[in-house]
Amino acid sequence: MSLDTQLDLWEVFIQSKSGLPYIHAGSVHASDNKMALQNARDIYTRRGEGTSIWVMPSKYIVASNPDDNDMLFDPSNDKVYRHPTFYVMPEGAKNI
């Protein structure tokens, strides 16, 4: 008996309305591009959830290492000047 295959793993991203971001919906198994797209359509847009689909082979996803979280994400916590609320506006200033 040959080894079983369940085809390759792909990640599915769905845009729910034009203009909105593509959001990760889940995964499907498929052998080629078209099958991946069709399977994504058949599985993740059965209730009118989508207007557009992206699929990509899961093996191409690169993820950050949780061990680096301190280095990667903590430094941005104290850069308050990147947020509009940091700035003091004169009383009565409008439309700014």
């Binding site: 369940q6 085809l7 198994h29 498929a30 069709q38 399977n39 058949d42 599985i43």
Partner: peptide, 8 residues
């Protein structure tokens, strides 16, 4: 033949 195709 595979779960995905079942749904299709």
């Amino acid at each position: 033949p595979i779960l995905e195709e079942d749904l299709a």
